[in-house]
Design a protein around this nucleic acid. Structure first.
Lengths: 207, 207
DNA sequence: AATCAAGTTGAGATCCCCCTCAATTTATTG
DNA sequence: CAATAAATTGAGGGGGATCTCAACTTGATT
């Protein structure tokens, strides 16, 4: 690769990181090219689709979900594992608007991102089961409820990121207090079934 | 007003109700005109701005928040009043995407809508205070936390409305279980101050 | 039925974004 | 210092949305 091309690629990645962080995965590509000091054509040379650029910018951070899930399962206390996972997950989303969008949409904009999210969520069934079985998490909380929580918190983050970047922690604390077995009261409706979840999220990636 | 004009106005309101319900407050105006069987020019004759049309379509329903707030304060049991208010509020949001958008944005697209939302939330301070003082609601829950909850639930509704229109009820149940005094554990961060809230929502309407 | 204000129309100006490609510039190599 | 392959450029085509206005049609009135 020619030296100028390598340089431009770096500049594009820099600009994309910055702008996707600020404006989310739908940020205008022209803006990214402009900030990189490069023409829109060059952007398309390096990244033929928005998805390619988002992959380059986001998948690395998304991969950190992996470790988070493993650590949660390995935590000595099952509740701490569970709560640590959701806190770590949302802390990642709260890093920037791009990650928040990516996780809230389960990476649906690209196979790479979808796979990264899927891998990151690989252990949630076990994390939840372990905490439930230890009697530390209410028994009627299911994986689908965590998905719903992700939608909810993603919006709290979206709205409050600029003015109060920690506001989601307070929201989450209220919610977690409702997940202790002692707090549980009967729930009014059934959890989302896999079919309905798939209707919203799209099919899970093949692997 | 001429008969044809009255007829077209009705058709526009019908179409707008339907389409805003389905697609939210950003639905394309051309689509509304098309479904009303009327040209885009006629739409603009009757409603010079999107806001005027949204007001006509949404403010009536938003006004029902008023009664909801009063009833909540009048409820014999303070907790039931509080929980009934939030359930009624979200049930209204869950009616359609337009209302959901309108309430989530605090009606910021027009003074009328903003005023309607503001009126509807007039009593929340008291509703919360009453439940707290009765020892039925945890004492660290504040009005700003309800705003955060509105953001959160609005997203749950947005995502799940078509596939599982009741999913928000389950989410809310978890959250409410965390709001009982017995469930309360220390919160990690302070509530959103009025300044930060204003930075996000815009200034409250004058009245 | 003639008149005319009221109402309707839709092409087109404007904006914003996506994406392409022929022409041009630039880095590298012998 | 050519020669040439690699890379860059940005105008332009296309889509979708908002909003306007001069020309036209229609309902009400006498």
């Amino acid at each position: 690769m020619r030296a100028d091309a390598a340089r431009n690629r770096e500049r594009l990645l820099d600009a994309a990181s910055r702008i996707v962080a600020e404006r989310g995965v739908d940020a205008p590509l022209e803006e990214i090219a402009r900030q990189a000091g490069v023409s829109i054509g060059t952007l398309y040379n390096h990244f033929p689709t928005r998805e390619a650029l988002l992959d380059a910018v986001l998948v690395g951070r998304l991969a950190s979900l992996d470790r988070l899930g493993s650590e949660a399962l390995a935590a000595p206390d099952p509740w701490d594992g569970f709560a640590g996972f959701v806190e770590g997950l949302f802390a990642l989303q709260a890093e920037n608007h791009g990650l928040n969008d990516a996780i809230a949409r389960a990476g649906s904009f690209s196979p790479e991102a979808a796979a990264a999210c899927h891998r990151g969520f690989r252990h949630v069934d076990q994390i939840i089961a372990r905490a439930r079985e230890a009697g530390r998490l209410r028994p009627d909380f299911e994986t689908a409820d965590l998905i719903t929580l992700v939608w909810a918190v993603s919006q709290v983050i979206r709205e409050s990121m600029s003015a109060a970047p920690d506001a989601w922690r307070r929201f989450l604390a209220f919610f977690l207090d409702g997940l202790r077995p002692g707090a549980a009261r009967p729930l009014p409706v059934e959890p989302l079934g896999p079919d309905r979840l798939a209707a919203i999220l799209g099919p899970p990636p093949a692997t």
